[in-house]
Write a protein that binds this DNA or RNA. Structure first.
Lengths: 206, 206
DNA sequence: TTCGAAGTGGTACTGAGTACCAAGTGAGCA
DNA sequence: TGCTCACTTGGTACTCAGTACCACTTCGAA
C-alpha cells in the first residue's frame, strides 16, 4: 500500500535528480535559442527550428517552456522571491524608495556576473515588442511580491489594498530600472549600470 | 498628367468621407467586440465571432484592426499626441513631474466623459494579460512622445539620449497612472480618480 | 459609358499553442 | 533476468491569430 510517506521519501531524491536534468536541458535549449534569436531575430526563428537545433521535438519544447519567449525570459524567472528577500533585509525605517534602489543591487550583481549574457538579454528584449511584453508580465509578478512589503512600510488612511501608492511606488521603481538598463544597453558603457540606475531613480528627490 | 497637386486637391475631400465611414465602422465593430469580451472573456471570443456579429468578414476585420486586442485599445489610440500637446502647454519652469500630473488631466477628463466605457476598458485590460501587454505597447508610444519634451526641461551633463532620467520620469508617471486607474477600477468609487492619481503621484515628495 | 482605384470576401498558408495517444526508458521488485 | 509502473518523449491533429493573394464589387471621375 502506497502512503503519502512512501511517496515523499522515495520520490524526493528522484525528483531532485530529474529536476537537475530538467534544469540542464532548459539551460542548453535556452542557450541555443538565444543564439538563434540574436543571429536572425526572434520573429524569424520558429520553435520548430529551435527544437531541431537543440535536438528535441516541438512537443517537448513546449513541455519545458510555456511560450517561445520564455526560452529567453527563463533567465530571470525566479528573481521575484530574491528581490522580495532583499527588500525585507533593508532596515524598516529606511524610505521604501531607497530600499527598492538597494534591492535592485541583486539584479545589477547578476548582470555584473554575466555581462555578456545580460547584454544579449537586454538587446533581445529591447528589439522585440512581444519579448518586452512578456518580460513586463514577469516583472508584474515581481511587483506583486514587493507591493505588500512596501505597503507595510507606507502608512495609509485608506483600507488595505485600496491605496494606489504602494503599487505606484514599486511600479515606478521598476520603470526606472528598465530605463536605466535600456540606457546601459544602448550606451557605450562609459557610464556604469549602477550610476545609470542611480540617476534614473534620483529624480523624485531633485 | 497627374501631379502631386491634383492628387492632394482631389483626394482630400474623398479621403475625408471615407475616413468618416471608416471611423463609424471601427466604432461599431469595437462596440460589438467590447460587449462580447465582457460577456464571455477575450480568450473565449474569436475574431470569427466578432466579425460575424458585426456583419463583416474576418479578412475585413483585420483591415480595420491590426490585432484582436486593437478592437478595444483603439479607444485611446491617438491619445499620445494629445498628451504631448497638453504637456507643452504647461509652464516651462514647472517641475516636469507636476506637468505630467497635470497632463494626465486630459485622460481623467476623457474618463469622466465616458465613465461606463472607461470602466469597461479598465476591467478588460486588467483581466487579460495579452490585452494589458498590448496596452503597455501603446503607452510606450505615448512615452516616446513625452520623453524628448521632458528631456528638454531636464538639465543633463550626459549626451542627449544617454541620460535615463527623462525616460525614467515619464515611465514612472505612466506607472503611477496605471496604479491609480487600477485602484479606481477595483475600488468602490468612494475615492475619485483624481484623488487616487494625486496619491499615486505624490510619493516622490513625501 | 467606361476606367481605375479602393473596399470586400474567400481561400490558403504559416506558426504558436493545446490535447491526446502510443512508444520508449529506467528504477524498483520478484 | 523479466515484469511493472511512473515518467518522459515524439507524433498527429486540432484551434486560432495573423498574412498573402486573388477575384469581385462599388463608386467616383473623365
Amino acid at each position: 500500500m502506497s502512503t503519502e510517506y512512501d511517496r515523499v521519501v522515495k520520490d524526493t531524491p528522484r525528483t531532485s535528480l530529474r529536476e537537475r536534468t530538467r534544469q540542464a536541458m532548459r539551460a542548453e535549449v535556452s542557450a541555443v535559442a538565444t543564439r538563434l534569436f540574436a543571429e536572425q531575430g526572434c520573429d524569424n526563428t520558429t520553435v520548430e527550428q529551435i527544437a531541431a537545433e537543440a535536438g528535441l521535438s516541438r512537443t517537448t519544447f513546449f513541455r519545458y517552456f510555456g511560450t517561445k519567449e520564455d526560452v529567453v525570459l527563463t533567465w530571470l524567472e525566479d528573481l521575484g522571491p530574491a528581490l522580495a528577500a532583499a527588500f525585507t533585509e533593508r532596515p524598516a525605517d529606511e524610505h521604501p524608495w531607497t530600499s527598492l534602489r538597494r534591492t535592485f543591487d541583486v539584479l545589477t550583481a547578476i548582470n555584473a556576473d554575466n555581462p555578456e549574457r545580460s547584454l544579449a538579454f537586454l538587446r533581445l528584449v529591447g528589439a522585440n515588442p512581444t519579448m518586452r511584453a512578456r518580460h513586463r508580465e514577469k516583472q508584474e509578478g515581481w511587483e506583486s511580491l514587493l507591493v505588500p512589503l512596501v505597503a507595510a512600510r507606507l502608512p495609509s488612511d485608506l483600507p488595505a489594498g485600496h491605496d494606489p501608492a504602494p503599487r505606484a511606488l514599486v511600479a515606478s521603481a521598476v520603470a526606472c530600472l528598465n530605463a536605466a538598463m535600456q540606457a546601459w544597453a544602448d550606451g557605450d558603457a562609459t557610464v556604469s549600470r549602477d550610476t545609470l540606475l542611480d540617476r534614473a531613480m534620483r529624480f523624485p528627490f531633485t
